[in-house]
């Protein structure tokens, strides 16, 4: 039950946030477009030390040298998601939206808000549907820490992306504490607990 990565795309078709926790097993992919494949994602000089070995802190979406795989990934994911969404809308009307799809090696969960903000989560194949989780991330983390923060921009020209520390810490602890088959109530209590927890973690790291 692992979470591989998380993406946010805004309404201008830009990727504004990427986070990877595990490399998914790429040996399944018939063509590997990534240049650096199975080694852990290398970090740039402003790496933050991770408190847990499970977490690998991610890179900024504006790719610096050697980060093309992540940016490529984001573009590929967006392309897939965008085409699927349009196809679903053409087939069953403008109100419908696809929720997830599954391949042999991963499962992709998708959630779109009315403001055309797209949240994408890549997990292993055994996960249940995580649309609710994505909704929680939107409501409790994105809106609280990014939208309400006056010092973080709403439009991201040139792919600046979301760089709010509270959001990242909240996301980390939320995802790390995600248990398999969680009832909805437990997710919420996890989130409430983690708000206090990550506040303390600021000092620890």
């Amino acid at each position: 039950m692992t979470i591989y990565s998380f993406y946010i795309f805004d309404r201008h078709c830009e990727c504004i946030y990427v986070k990877q926790w595990h490399q998914r097993d790429r040996s399944f992919r018939p063509t590997s477009s990534a240049s650096t494949v199975d080694s852990p994602v290398t970090l740039s000089s402003d790496q933050r030390s991770s408190t847990s070995s499970k977490l690998q802190n991610d890179v900024h979406p504006t790719g610096r040298g050697g980060r093309l795989s992540v940016q490529d990934d984001a573009k590929l994911v967006f392309g897939v998601v965008f085409s699927l969404r349009n196809m679903v809308r053409k087939l069953s009307g403008p109100d419908d939206s696809f929720i997830s799809y599954r391949t042999g090696s991963y499962k992709l969960h998708y959630y779109e808000t009315a403001t055309n903000l797209k949240f994408v989560l890549l997990t292993d194949v055994k996960m249940n549907n995580l649309k609710v989780v994505l909704h929680q991330i939107y409501v409790n983390l994105y809106v609280e820490f990014v939208t309400k923060n006056p010092l973080s921009p709403i439009e991201h020209p040139g792919g600046e992306g979301v760089a709010v520390e509270l959001f990242e810490m909240g996301l980390d602890s939320f995802i790390v504490n995600l248990r398999p088959h969680p009832p909805l109530r437990r997710i919420q209590t996890n989130l409430v607990l983690n708000r206090e927890q990550y506040r303390i973690d600021i000092k620890v790291s």
Binding site: F145, K148, N149, P150, L151, S152, V164
Partner: peptide, 9 residues
């Protein structure tokens, strides 16, 4: 409560 100050400030 909603303001997260970036490092440079």
């Amino acid at each position: 409560s909603y303001i997260s100050v970036p490092k440079e400030m």
